[in-house]
Design a protein around this nucleic acid. Structure first.
Lengths: 116, 116
DNA sequence: GTATATAGTGTCAAAAAGGATACCGTGATG
DNA sequence: CATCACGGTATCCTTTTTGACACTATATAC
C-alpha cells in the first residue's frame, strides 16, 4: 500500500517516480494490473491466478487499486455474487509502465531459466 | 525493501513485474536510482536531495541497492570519509523503467501543477 | 579547546503491511 | 438437510518497514 497516501506530492524532483511506485506497490498490485491488462476478470479468477493470496489481501489490494482509480469494480446483483474487475482508463495508461517492468524482469531476473 | 528477498521467483506469469517492484520498492530506492541516473553522488549529496530521509534509512536503502547489484559503492580511504555511489551496469539498464515511471507520474500525478 | 563535516552504526519503538482463520447470506445441487 | 460456490468481513497476530535519537572516529578550522 502507498506508504503516504496521496499526501500532496511535495517532494523534490524524482518524486513522480515514488508517486507511481506508491500506486503499484503492495505485494500483489503489480500482478493484478498485469493480469487485468489481458481483460476483465472476476474476483475468484484473479484469486486463482495469484496463488497464495488470501481473500483479505486480495480484497484490500483491489480496493486500493479502485480507490486510486486504476481499476473498475462492477457488481452484479446476482446470487451467487458476481463482481468483475477491469482496468480504468487511468489504469490502462499504466500499460507502458507495467510492460517496462515486465520487460526488465524477463531480461534480468532468472525466472524460469533457473534450470536452463 | 523486497518483501521476499530473491526467494527463487517461482511465481506465475506476471511475476517478473513483482520481481522488479521488489528491487525498486522501498520508500527511497526509486528516487535514489533516479538521482543517480544523472551521475555519481556522495552519501550526503543524496541525503540532501532526499529531504526527510534519515541516515539510517539512507544507509539501508543504499546497502540493499548495492546488494541487488544496482549500484556501486566506492569508498575512499580519506578523512573525513568519502563514499561515492553510482549506477552499475545493471542499474543503468533500469533507466527505461525509471523513465517510464517518471513519465507516467509527470503526466498523471499532479505534482507542481497543483496551483496551476 | 571546541566545533564541524563525513559516513556511518546501534538500539529502541512505532507504524504499516501481511497472514491465518473463522464467519456471513443465499440460491442451486445432491 | 448438508454442501458448494461466490465475494466478501471481522478479528487477531506476526513480521516488516520505517522513524527517532544517540553515538563513533578523525582531520581541519576557529
Amino acid at each position: 500500500m502507498p506508504r503516504v497516501r496521496h499526501k500532496t506530492f511535495d517532494c523534490s524532483a524524482g518524486c513522480p517516480v515514488e508517486g507511481v511506485l506508491n500506486l503499484i506497490d503492495g505485494k500483489w498490485k503489480g500482478v493484478i494490473l498485469y493480469h487485468l491488462m489481458s481483460g476483465t476478470l472476476r474476483f475468484n479468477e484473479i484469486r486463482r491466478k495469484l496463488v497464495n493470496v488470501t481473500q483479505r489481501m486480495l480484497t484490500n489490494q483491489l480496493r486500493e487499486l479502485e480507490a486510486d482509480g486504476l481499476i473498475i469494480r462492477k457488481v452484479y446483483a446476482e446470487v451467487p455474487p458476481k463482481v468483475e474487475y477491469s482496468l480504468s482508463e487511468r489504469g490502462r495508461s499504466l500499460e507502458p509502465v507495467i510492460n517496462a517492468l515486465k520487460a526488465w524482469g524477463d531480461a534480468n531476473l532468472a525466472v524460469d531459466k533457473e534450470a536452463a
